[in-house]
């Protein structure tokens, strides 16, 4: 069986039964960012510590990517390939999800029907196999999916 490897190291906790995105928190000023990288965007301090972000949040804004992005840099997901290995582009959802009082992250959405997306709905993180790399391993990526039964205001801190 093919191995599963994250699309990038340090992006989310993996392997993990309930993976979480890894943000950064500035050791000097406390600024929270995503993805984690050295150097604080607010104060410029060099040292930034890893901070796991909440797995649930609410949809802050969204769109549907209606045309195929250019390659490079875009690499289509396995789900866009037919049995014959040809690519058939399917529009995909993209959103900003508010995860805590201080951060909103950008992500793929599992939903691409505008009728079923609404600002304020409760969302949860999933990690899923995006495509196979040259070695045949699955590259795991992250996305947010609507929580079951959610039509609106989800999180208590809103």
């Amino acid at each position: 069986m093919a191995d599963q490897v994250p699309i990038a190291e340090g992006l989310f906790t993996w392997p993990d039964e309930s993976p979480a995105l890894i943000g950064g928190q500035c050791s000097a000023c406390g600024w929270v960012s995503f993805p984690m990288k050295p150097g604080c965007a607010r104060c410029g301090a060099e040292h930034v510590e890893a901070r796991q972000l909440p797995r649930e949040g609410i949809l802050w804004s969204w769109t549907i990517q209606g045309f195929r992005p250019k390659t490079p840099p875009y690499t289509p997901p396995e789900s866009a390939l037919t049995d014959h290995g040809e690519e058939k582009f399917e529009p995909f959802g993209v959103g900003y999800i508010q995860l805590a009082k201080d951060i909103i992250v950008e992500a793929h959405l599992t939903e691409s029907d505008p009728e079923r997306l609404q600002i304020g709905m409760a969302m949860e993180l999933i990690v899923f196999p995006y495509r196979r790399n040259e070695q045949g391993n699955w590259l795991m990526s992250y996305a947010f999916q609507p929580q079951a039964g959610s039509q609106g205001e989800g999180a208590q801190w809103m």
Partner: peptide, 15 residues
């Protein structure tokens, strides 16, 4: 920006 951001089709001004 990291390469994965582009690979996933997130690096578009239109979005």
């Amino acid at each position: 920006l990291p390469q994965w951001y582009g690979e996933l089709g997130l690096c578009l001004t239109t979005q």
